[in-house]
Each structure stands twice: as structure tokens, then as C-alpha cells.
Simulated scan of single mutants.
Amino acid sequence: MQSENRVFDDFVKFVNGAAGTFAGMAREGEQAVRDRAREFMGGLDFVSREEFDAVKQMAAAARDDADALKKRVDELEAALKAKGGASTPI
């Protein structure tokens, strides 16, 4: 009876050791995949969120400036036309 328990105990230790080994392998594999993905993404030309937002704000400001300039040109053309001058469309 004692020898059967000893064999069973050894088997349980073996299984626990194997489970720990497999868990460690899974963690290492997951980390390797993450490293590869980070390496792949780093090689592409992605921008950070901060850079994207900054460019987006600059584009909105440029659009506002262009709209203001168009309005000013329209007003000047209307004033020139009211004075009898010729206006040439661009």
C-alpha cells in the first residue's frame, strides 16, 4: 500500500512539474508574439495619437483660414464690381 502511494505521489509531482513547464512555455510564447507584433508595427509608418491630433488641429485651422480668405476675396470682388471695375475669376 505504501509503495502505491509513493508511485502516485511521484506521478502527481511529475504532472505538476509538467504543468508548470507548459505554463512557462505559454507565457514565453505569448511574450515572443507580442515582441514580434511590436517589432512589426514599429517598422511601419504609424503616427502617435498626439501627432495625429496635432495635424488634425492644424488642418482645421488652415481650413478656417482658407474660408476666411475666400470670404474676403468675395467681398473685395463684390466691392470692385459695385464700383464698376472688372473682376476676373480665378
Results as ranks from 00 to 15, higher is better:
residue 85 G to Q: 15
residue 3 S to E: 07
residue 81 K to R: 10
residue 70 K to G: 15
residue 27 R to K: 07
residue 58 M to H: 06
residue 87 S to K: 11
residue 47 V to W: 00
residue 2 Q to H: 05
residue 88 T to V: 12
residue 37 A to P: 02
residue 16 N to P: 01
residue 66 A to N: 15
residue 3 S to N: 09
residue 23 A to C: 00
residue 24 G to T: 00
residue 46 F to D: 08
residue 13 K to Y: 02
residue 60 A to L: 14
residue 48 S to F: 00
residue 63 R to Y: 06
residue 60 A to P: 01
residue 28 E to S: 10
residue 69 L to K: 11
residue 62 A to D: 15
residue 26 A to S: 04
residue 64 D to A: 12
residue 60 A to Y: 05
residue 46 F to T: 03
residue 76 L to T: 04
residue 35 D to R: 11
residue 9 D to M: 04
residue 62 A to N: 15
residue 58 M to D: 15
residue 5 N to M: 12
residue 5 N to E: 10
residue 69 L to N: 11
residue 33 V to Q: 07
residue 39 E to A: 15
residue 46 F to V: 01
residue 74 D to R: 03
residue 34 R to Q: 11
residue 70 K to S: 14
residue 84 G to L: 01
residue 77 E to G: 02
residue 58 M to N: 13
residue 60 A to V: 12
residue 45 D to H: 09
residue 1 M to C: 04
residue 56 K to R: 11
residue 16 N to M: 10
residue 61 A to P: 02
residue 3 S to Y: 06
residue 49 R to I: 14
residue 80 L to S: 11
residue 10 D to C: 01
residue 18 A to R: 08
residue 10 D to E: 11
residue 38 R to A: 15
residue 61 A to Q: 15
residue 26 A to L: 03
residue 87 S to W: 13
residue 33 V to L: 13
residue 83 K to N: 09
residue 59 A to Q: 13
residue 62 A to Y: 03
residue 16 N to I: 05
residue 28 E to R: 13
residue 5 N to R: 11
residue 25 M to T: 03
residue 24 G to D: 07
residue 53 D to V: 08
residue 27 R to G: 11
residue 25 M to G: 10
residue 76 L to Q: 06
residue 48 S to N: 01
residue 36 R to C: 05
residue 25 M to N: 06
residue 62 A to C: 02
residue 61 A to H: 09
residue 15 V to R: 00
residue 60 A to N: 08
residue 36 R to D: 13
residue 69 L to A: 14
residue 49 R to Y: 08
residue 3 S to H: 07
residue 19 A to I: 08
residue 60 A to E: 11
residue 15 V to Q: 02
residue 76 L to N: 05
residue 16 N to F: 07
residue 26 A to Y: 03
residue 62 A to W: 01
residue 54 A to I: 01
residue 38 R to S: 12
residue 44 L to S: 09
residue 62 A to F: 00
residue 22 F to Q: 12
residue 74 D to W: 01
residue 6 R to W: 07
residue 76 L to R: 05
residue 68 A to N: 04
residue 14 F to Y: 12
residue 20 G to R: 10
residue 41 M to E: 13
residue 59 A to C: 04
residue 90 I to K: 13
residue 14 F to A: 12
residue 19 A to R: 10
residue 72 R to P: 00
residue 77 E to F: 01
residue 46 F to W: 08
residue 52 F to H: 05
residue 75 E to K: 04
residue 54 A to S: 06
residue 21 T to P: 03
residue 61 A to G: 09
residue 56 K to N: 14
residue 19 A to V: 14
residue 77 E to R: 07
residue 56 K to W: 08
residue 1 M to D: 11
residue 14 F to M: 07
residue 69 L to S: 09
residue 55 V to R: 14
residue 50 E to H: 00
residue 50 E to K: 04
residue 72 R to M: 02
residue 84 G to R: 00
residue 88 T to L: 15
residue 43 G to R: 03
residue 82 A to S: 05
residue 32 A to W: 03
residue 82 A to Y: 00
residue 32 A to K: 09
residue 77 E to I: 02
residue 63 R to A: 13
residue 65 D to I: 08
residue 55 V to Y: 08
residue 35 D to E: 09
residue 49 R to E: 14
residue 47 V to P: 01
residue 44 L to Q: 12
residue 18 A to L: 08
residue 69 L to R: 10
residue 17 G to K: 12
residue 20 G to A: 06
residue 71 K to S: 04
residue 17 G to Y: 00
residue 77 E to W: 04
residue 14 F to R: 08
residue 61 A to F: 05
residue 10 D to K: 09
residue 59 A to S: 07
residue 57 Q to G: 03
residue 87 S to N: 12
residue 58 M to W: 03
residue 54 A to N: 01
residue 21 T to W: 10
